[in-house]
């Protein structure tokens, strides 16, 4: 038996070829097969995620907040008059004194400047999502790349990024953000970038690097080198996809810390932001209502509770994702 040495076919010259895989429409079929695989792994992951009560609870809370965020523009467009209900410039002419307690027209009352608290709360929810998710994406993009690169190259590259990470961990991040906000006008987007960069080059990079180290020594990395693939291919095709589950986990935790950092800075009045949960509490504080016990609860409680719930929801989602990602529990990792 003799195979032709030409690059055309590996098959014995005499025998008939194997059945071709669906000649014609092959590209579509390839795409179809891939989509099916992605959907299947997503379904499996979702099943494990929802099996834990924690995951379900977190998801419910996050969806609830998402609905709140989406409802604000809808309400402003339909039933709310912009003169009265605008979260920043509105004024409740109907109330006799400000801050007014909850009423039918203002379910969560008004703040000391006569603005509707519910409107502020709903308006802020959207910004919190944007802030948290932007910061998380930036963190994960940086941390995954830095982790994979420093694990793969080791040596000086590794030493540089790890010492940088140590430096960032050693700096108290809130104080650093306070300094930065004094130097620059920090808008929501820049704040997200700064938090993302700090997280990405900081602790998250160390965690992902240690994971990348354990992936780097597995035989399939040598197998990838055997194909002749370059360093770029090995890092981004073989190491990074195996890091992504852990990255996703840390994404959730970053969302939590970003929302929290924003609340602290807004409370201190250091951000160039129109409205946020932190600013709502800040307004209550500057008017002297924060220390008056529970009498003006609607100024503090809605914003405070929202911060607490959304932060915990993302944290819990991270915990539940841990179940999906954890190699000891994962069904994918054989």
């Amino acid at each position: 038996m003799r195979w032709s040495r030409s690059k055309g076919s590996l098959l014995p010259d005499a025998s008939a070829g194997p059945p071709r895989v669906e000649p014609g429409g092959g590209r579509l079929r390839l795409l179809h097969a891939r989509t099916r695989l992605v959907l299947r792994s997503f379904r499996n992951g979702a099943a494990v995620f929802l099996e834990s009560r924690i995951g379900l609870l977190a998801l419910v809370i996050i969806v609830l907040f998402a609905v709140m965020a989406l409802s604000h523009p809808v309400l402003m467009g339909t039933v709310w008059d912009a003169d009265i209900y605008d979260p920043v410039t509105g004024y409740a002419f109907d109330a006799t004194e400000q801050p007014a307690p909850p009423s039918w027209k203002h379910p969560l009352g008004t703040d000391p400047l006569g603005r509707d608290v519910l409107s502020q709360l709903l308006f802020s929810t959207g910004s919190e999502f944007v802030l948290g998710i932007t910061a998380a994406l930036v963190t994960v993009a940086i941390a995954t790349t830095v982790g994979a690169v420093s694990a793969y190259y080791g040596g000086l590259v590794d030493a540089f990024f790890m010492r940088l990470a140590d430096l960032i961990i050693a700096l108290p991040s809130i104080s650093l953000l306070i300094v930065l906000s004094g130097l620059f006008d920090l808008s929501l987007f820049y704040l997200a970038l700064v938090i993302g960069v700090l997280g990405g080059f900081g602790g998250t990079a160390i965690v992902l690097k240690s994971q990348a180290l354990s992936i780097k020594v597995r035989p399939f990395i040598d197998a990838a080198r055997m194909t002749g693939g370059g360093q770029f291919r090995i890092i981004f095709v073989h190491i990074v996809p195996n890091l992504l589950p852990l990255s996703l986990l840390y994404m959730m935790f970053t969302v939590t810390s970003a929302i929290f950092a924003e609340a602290v800075l807004s409370f201190l009045g250091l951000l160039d932001i129109r409205m946020s949960w932190g600013i709502m509490i800040h307004t209550a504080n500057t008017g002297g209502y924060l220390l008056s016990g529970t009498r003006y609860w609607w100024l503090v409680l809605p914003a405070g509770a929202s911060i607490t719930f959304l932060c915990s929801a993302f944290y819990l989602a991270g915990r539940a994702l841990d179940e999906v990602v954890n190699p000891r529990l994962s069904r994918r990792d054989g």
């Binding site: 695989l37 597995r218 035989p219 399939f220 040598d222 197998a223 990838a224 055997m226 073989h238 996809p241 195996n242 994918r332 990792d333 054989g334």
Partner: peptide
């Protein structure tokens, strides 16, 4: 080319 000893570890688990 090389055939590895370990048929479990020598393939990227995330690739078909």
């Amino acid at each position: 080319q090389l055939i590895f000893q370990d048929p479990y570890g020598s393939m990227n688990p995330r690739r078909t």
